Each structure stands twice: as C-alpha cells, then as structure tokens.
Amino acid sequence: EETYEVDGEEQLKKVEKMLRDRNLDVEVEIHNGKFVIRAK
C-alpha cells in the first residue's frame, strides 16, 4: 500500500491518474484540508 499527501485538486488529479494508470485501487480522503491518497 502506498500513501500520498497532496495539497490542492490539481496535484490530486495528477497523482490519482498516475496510480490508476498502474491499475491500482485508489481511495481519497481529506485530512486537515489535505488530500490523502491511498493506493493498493
């Protein structure tokens, strides 16, 4: 499992696309105004 923490939606979209391109399962949560992306 990998976890990424990003600020802002633009970064979120980039990271999310990169992970989905690797066929990973992606979950996004918001913690303290930051996006936390978990990939399995």
Rank of each mutant, 00 (worst) to 15 (best):
Glu10Lys: 04
Lys40Arg: 12
Ile30Tyr: 14
Ile30Asp: 10
Lys34Gln: 09
Asp25Gln: 14
Val36Trp: 02
Glu29Gly: 05
Val6Gln: 01
Asp21Arg: 02
Arg20Ile: 05
Lys40Trp: 09
Lys34Val: 07
Val36Tyr: 04
Val15Gln: 01
Lys13Glu: 08
Asn32Arg: 00
Phe35Ala: 14
Glu2Gln: 08
Asn32Ala: 00
Lys13Pro: 01
Glu10Asp: 11
Asn23Glu: 07
Arg38Val: 12
Arg22His: 09
Glu1Asp: 12
Gly8Ile: 08
Asn23His: 12
Arg20Ala: 07
Glu1Trp: 15
His31Ala: 08
Ala39Val: 15
Glu2Ile: 13
Met18Gly: 04
Glu5Tyr: 14
His31Arg: 13
Tyr4Asp: 03
Val28Phe: 05
Asn23Met: 10
Val26Ile: 13
Arg20His: 07
Arg22Met: 11
Asp25Ser: 12
Lys14Tyr: 10
Ile37Pro: 13
Asp7Trp: 14
Glu29Asp: 05
Leu24His: 07
Glu9Gly: 05
Lys13Arg: 12
Asp7Glu: 13
Thr3Lys: 10
Asp21Val: 04
Tyr4Ala: 02
Glu1Ser: 11
Lys14Asn: 07
Gly33Gln: 00
Tyr4Asn: 02
Glu1Ala: 09
Gln11Arg: 04
Ile30Gly: 06
Asp25Thr: 12
Leu12Arg: 10
Asn23Asp: 07
Leu19Gln: 01
Glu10Pro: 02
Asn23Tyr: 10
Leu19Ile: 03
Asp7Arg: 07
Lys14Trp: 13
Arg38Ile: 13
Leu12Tyr: 07
Lys13Asp: 04
Gly8Gln: 07
Glu9Val: 11
Gly33Phe: 00
His31Trp: 09
Gly8Tyr: 09
Asp7Ile: 12
Asp7Ser: 09
Arg20Tyr: 04
Glu27Ala: 09
Ile37Met: 00
Glu27Arg: 09
Val36Asn: 01
Lys34Leu: 01
Met18Trp: 11
Arg20Glu: 05
Glu2Gly: 06
Asp7Ala: 07
Phe35Met: 15
Glu2Tyr: 12
Leu24Ile: 09
Glu16Gln: 07
Glu27Gly: 02
Lys14Gly: 03
Val26Ser: 02
Asn32Gln: 00
Asn23Leu: 09
Glu10Ser: 07
Tyr4Gln: 02
Asp21Gly: 06
Thr3Gly: 12
Glu16Arg: 06
Glu9Tyr: 14
Gly8Ser: 15
Lys40Val: 12
Thr3Val: 15
Gly8Glu: 06
Lys40Gln: 08
Arg38Trp: 03
Asp25Glu: 13
Val26Arg: 01
Lys13Tyr: 06
Glu29Met: 11
Asp7Gln: 10
Tyr4Pro: 03
Val26Gln: 01
Glu9Leu: 14
Glu9Met: 12
Ile30Cys: 15
Glu29Pro: 00
Lys17Trp: 00
Lys14Ala: 13
Glu9Asp: 09
Glu16Asp: 03
Val6Asn: 02
Ile37Asp: 13
Glu16Asn: 04
Val15Lys: 03
Met18Phe: 07
Ile30Asn: 08
Arg22Phe: 09
Val6Phe: 05
Glu1Pro: 11
Arg22Glu: 04
His31Phe: 10
Glu9Lys: 06
Gln11Asp: 12
Glu27Trp: 14
Lys17Gly: 04
Lys34Phe: 04
Gly33Ser: 00
Ile37Leu: 01
Leu24Glu: 02
Val26Ala: 04
Lys34Asp: 14
Lys17Ser: 07
Val36Lys: 06
Ile30Trp: 14
Lys40Ala: 05
Ile30Gln: 09
Thr3Tyr: 14
Ile37Asn: 04
Val6Ser: 01
Phe35Thr: 15
Asn32Gly: 06
Val36Glu: 07
Glu5Arg: 05
Arg22Asp: 03
Lys14Thr: 11
Val15His: 02
His31Pro: 00
Arg20Gly: 03
Ile37His: 03
Lys34Thr: 02
Lys17Val: 05
Arg20Met: 08
Arg22Thr: 04
Glu10Cys: 15
Glu10Val: 09
Tyr4Ser: 01
Arg38Leu: 08
Asp25Lys: 11
Glu5Thr: 12
Phe35Pro: 15
Glu1Tyr: 13
Ala39Ile: 15
Arg38Phe: 06
Glu1Gln: 10
Leu12Ser: 06
Glu2Asp: 07
Val6Lys: 04
Glu27Pro: 00
Asn23Thr: 03
Gln11Ser: 10
Val36Arg: 08
Gln11Ile: 07
His31Val: 15
Tyr4Lys: 03
Val26Pro: 03
Glu16Gly: 02
Val28Pro: 00
Glu1Gly: 11
Phe35Cys: 15
Glu5Asp: 05
Tyr4Gly: 02
Glu16Trp: 06
Lys34Pro: 00
Lys40His: 10
Arg22Ile: 05
Lys17His: 06
Arg22Trp: 12
Glu27Tyr: 13
Met18Ile: 09
Gln11Trp: 13
Leu24Ser: 02
Val15Trp: 08
Arg22Cys: 15
Asn32Glu: 11
Met18Ser: 06
Asp7Leu: 10
Val36Ile: 15
Glu27Lys: 10
Gly33Trp: 00
Val26Asn: 00
Leu24Lys: 05
Glu2Thr: 11
Glu5Val: 14
Val36Met: 04
Glu1Phe: 13
Glu29Cys: 15
Asp7Tyr: 14
Leu24Trp: 13
Glu1Leu: 12
Leu12Phe: 08
Gly8Thr: 15
Asp25Tyr: 12
Ile37Ala: 04
Val36Asp: 05
Gly8Leu: 09
Lys40Cys: 14
Asp21Ser: 07
Val28Arg: 01
Gly33Thr: 00
Glu10Trp: 04
Ala39Leu: 13
Lys34Met: 05
Asn32Thr: 00
Lys40Pro: 03
Val15Met: 11
His31Met: 12
Leu24Phe: 12
Lys13Trp: 06
Arg38Gly: 07
Leu12Gly: 02
Leu12Asn: 02
Met18Asp: 05
Val26Glu: 02
Gly33Ala: 00
Arg38Thr: 14
Arg20Lys: 11
Val36Cys: 14
Lys34Ile: 12
Met18Tyr: 05
Arg22Lys: 08
Glu29Trp: 11
Ala39Cys: 15
Met18Val: 04
Lys34Ser: 11
Val6Trp: 07
Lys17Leu: 02
Phe35Gln: 14
Gln11Leu: 12
Arg20Asp: 03
Lys40Glu: 03
Asn32His: 02
Leu19Ser: 01
His31Asn: 08
Val6Ala: 10
Val6Leu: 09
Leu24Met: 13
Arg20Thr: 04
Glu5Asn: 06
Asn23Val: 04
Arg20Gln: 06
Gly8Val: 08
Met18Arg: 05
Lys17Gln: 11
Glu5Gly: 04
Val15Asp: 02
Glu16Ile: 15
Glu27Ser: 12
Lys34His: 14
Lys17Ala: 10
Lys40Ile: 13
Gln11Tyr: 07
Asn32Pro: 00
Glu5Gln: 06
Gln11Gly: 09
Gly8Ala: 06
Asn23Trp: 12
Arg38Pro: 11
Val28Met: 03
Arg38Met: 11
Val15Ile: 14
Glu10His: 06
Thr3Asp: 03
Leu19Gly: 01
Asp25Val: 14
Lys40Leu: 10
Lys40Thr: 11
Glu10Asn: 06
Arg38Asp: 11
His31Lys: 13
Lys13Gly: 07
Ala39His: 04
Leu19Met: 03
Thr3Leu: 12
Asn32Asp: 12
Arg38Asn: 10
Glu10Tyr: 06
Lys40Tyr: 06
Gly33Pro: 12
Gly33Ile: 00
Glu27His: 12
Leu19Tyr: 03
Met18Pro: 02
Asn32Trp: 00
Ile30His: 08
Glu1Ile: 13
Val15Ser: 02
Asp7Asn: 06
Lys13Gln: 09
Glu16Thr: 14
Val36Leu: 11
Ala39Glu: 04
Glu5Trp: 13
Arg20Phe: 05
Ala39Ser: 08
Lys14Arg: 10
Ile37Thr: 09
Lys13Asn: 06
Lys14Asp: 07
Asn32Ile: 00
Lys34Ala: 08
Asn32Met: 02
Lys17Asn: 06
Asp25His: 14
Glu16Cys: 15
Asp21Tyr: 02
Val15Gly: 01
Tyr4Met: 03
Tyr4Glu: 02
Val28Ser: 01
Val26Lys: 01
Val6Glu: 01
Val6Ile: 09
Glu2Val: 11
Tyr4Phe: 10
Asn23Cys: 15
Val26Gly: 01
Gln11Phe: 13
Val15Tyr: 11
Ile37Cys: 13
Met18His: 04
Met18Cys: 15
Glu1Val: 13
Glu1Thr: 10
Gln11Thr: 10
Thr3Ser: 09
Asn32Ser: 00
Asp21Pro: 00
Glu9Gln: 07
His31Ile: 15
Gly33Asp: 08
Leu19Pro: 03
Phe35Gly: 14
Glu29Thr: 13
Thr3Trp: 15
Glu16His: 04
Ile30Ser: 09
